[in-house]
Amino acid sequence: MNFPRLMVSFLVSITLFAQVSWAQVASTEALFAHAATPTAKEKLSALTAREDVAAKFVEMGVNPELIQQRIAAMSEEEALLVSHDIDTLPAGADAGMSLLGAVVFVFIVLLVTDLLGLTKVFNFTKPIVNK
């Protein structure tokens, strides 16, 4: 847990240092900067976004050796989005439904529709609405 956090802090500090020596040159980044100046809170959340993502990744079982690399490959904006929304963002997979899964699924759907009085599939159900 501590190892990746430390590494990410290290990476972040290297990045900041690199920007200091380039201070007089306006970066291409300036083209994409939002018109409004970010608030102090937004700046802080951008700085900790990568650490937050690292912590989430550890929780979610990502190989710890690769966490720094994976986060370093995200832009600042992307890291911020992941740190906020990782729980709700879609994760694409092969994700076809298995036959067993489908059988269970259909069973539950029909059970619910039985209980709602929309179907009468099973002998053991009685609708729970409007007698």
């Binding site: 990744f57 690769l66 490959a73």
Partner: peptide
Amino acid sequence: ERTLIPAKGGTLQIELIA
């Protein structure tokens, strides 16, 4: 190794891009 998040059983769009 760089794309899978085991607990989500898949890959985020951002990580696919990265």
